[in-house]
Design a protein around this nucleic acid. Structure first.
Length: 452
RNA sequence: GGUGGGAUGGCCGAGCGGUUAGGUCGCGGACUGCAAAUCCGCUUACAGCGGUUCAACUCCGCUUCCCACCUCCA
């Protein structure tokens, strides 16, 4: 039985499909105005672990991840570059998908882009206007009136009667009836340039939140199982999604919400001014692999802040090498009881609110026992664990063919060793290392593997 | 001011009212021609002050410090 913490109720609950043994999951995706950074990927990796754990438990899944390809930042970027919005965002959409592969993140079933769903959004806004929950302002924007939706604040658990007007709340939004009201549709303005769509309220573009309500309901239904994102999305984004959807349909929008915490880098918030801001590409260019990065991102509980440091990447590299050494001597076959025990621990861990650190502890328990047994038919157990972790077999250095030159040196070294000519043996080991191969002497002679 | 999450051994990071987290690093040992890998052992930590309890890192209170959100940053 899989349990997760529901942000809506703030309690641990069983996650089970509303219907058809299928979890319908909506995950807030990237705004494609730049390369995504590792903080973004902490969220996407968390969602990947969630997805995989659902599948691990024998449930089916239908996952939708949106691509926000129209907003202030994308418009600004496109207009600054003097190219159409679609051309500008295409580059970052492509980069995003490449990055998902780098991190071994499974594909969602649908990746709807906001700009492909303007009619659906207009329809939803129209419905809210008809119901009298939304209103048009003088400049042609449409706002959602939070006062007209009694449940407003139920996700964030905010009591709006006792809030200070937020410091970040700009004072220049005269058109709103209430400071809490948010835009469903934004009237065209000069800085939008060529970006805009016609609507019943004039030319403009959708507000940020409306795309998620419109697209999630289109692909998953008016009520669905699960919706996730980073903790910063909880308010206002997700709160507003609920308001838009439930005000329009009169039905519950989502039964379970999950949010992951932020990551810090070297103990500090990631920011460009601190020089600790990294995209995934920044790290791979430094020689870190997606596999190592995935390991670090999954090695803390999703609900807790994660400190991302280069020392953690180094630890990950060594830990993964140890796993590799172990899986190399694991074999196929019926798993022994001592291995099954670790799988049970593993299963209990991931089903307990995706406790990946404990899952890793179970994995390393299997590693230790396998080593102690000098191997064993545990490949199937590793594979089963890796259905969730996606880190054991992913991106392992391929079983590359040993080049003839290296083979010749190995033969020579075997001869030297037979003659107990240790100096020559060591010399040849260094020579082979220079070619990029590591030699180890075991009971059954030499073995080689590519150096990292 | 409101709400939520934290403070665990050199570093990262779980956890629970009494039982080994785990990884990495360090030290010692076994094995090895040496090395690597592997195995065994050790370094026995829970911000501070009170309280509850037979027993608290784990519950309660207070204090200090940190982080996040409070209207468009995962």
């Amino acid at each position: 039985m899989m349990k997760v913490t529901n942000s809506l109720t703030r309690s641990l609950e069983e996650l089970k499909p509303l219907e058809n043994n299928e979890i319908r999951l909506y995950t807030c995706g990237p705004t494609v105005y730049n390369y995504a950074h590792i903080g973004n990927f902490r969220a996407y990796v968390f969602e990947d672990i969630l997805r995989r754990t659902i599948l691990f438990n024998g449930m089916k899944i239908r996952q939708v991840m949106n691509l926000t390809d129209v907003d202030d930042k994308t418009i600004r970027g496109a207009n600054a570059a003097g190219i159409p919005l679609t051309e500008y965002t295409k580059k970052y959409k492509d980069a995003f998908f490449a990055d998902l592969e780098t991190l071994n993140i499974q594909k969602a079933e649908v990746y709807p882009a906001a700009t492909d769903h303007i009619p659906e959004m207009i329809a939803l806004v129209s419905k809210l206007v008809e119901k009298g929950i939304a209103y048009k302002s003088e400049d042609g924007s449409v706002y959602f009136s939070v006062r007209k939706f009694p449940g407003y604040g139920k996700l964030a658990h905010i009591d709006f009667d006792h809030q200070k007007t937020g410091a970040r709340c700009l004072g220049d939004e005269y058109d709103k009836e209430n400071v809490g009201d948010f835009a469903l549709w934004k009237a065209w303005e000069e800085s939008d340039g060529p970006v805009g769509w016609d609507s019943p309220w004039g030319r403009g573009r959708p507000g940020w939140h409306i795309e998620c309500s419109a697209m999630s309901m289109k692909y998953l239904g008016e009520t669905f199982d699960l919706h996730t994102g980073g903790i910063d999305n909880l308010f206002p984004h997700h709160e507003n999604e609920i308001a838009q959807a439930e005000a329009a349909t009169g039905k519950p929008f989502v039964s379970t919400w999950m949010h992951c915490a932020h990551l810090r880098v070297n103990g500090e918030k990631m920011s460009k001014s601190l020089g600790n801001f990294f995209t995934l590409r920044d790290l791979t260019e430094k020689g870190w692999t997606g596999r190592e990065i995935r390991y670090v991102l999954t090695n803390a509980h999703y609900s807790q802040g994660l400190n991302f440091a280069f020392s953690a990447l180094e630890d990950a590299r060594k830990s993964l090498r140890r796993i590799d050494e172990c899986t190399a001597k694991a074999t196929e076959g019926e798993a022994p009881d001592w291995a099954k025990k670790h799988l049970d621990d593993f299963t209990a861990a991931v089903n307990d609110d995706l406790n990946t650190p404990r899952a890793y502890a179970a994995l390393f328990g299997l590693v230790r026992d396998t080593n102690a047994h000098g191997g064993g038919p545990v490949l199937g157990v590793f594979r089963r664990m890796d259905e969730v972790l996606g880190v054991v077999f992913f991106g392992k250095s391929a079983e590359a063919d040993v080049p003839a030159g290296v083979k010749a040196l190995l033969d020579a070294r075997a001869a030297a060793r037979a003659a107990k000519n240790w100096a020559e043996s060591d010399r040849l080991r260094n020579e082979i290392a220079a070619l990029g191969w590591a030699v180890k002497d075991g009971k059954e002679g030499q073995s080689v593997s590519p150096l990292k």
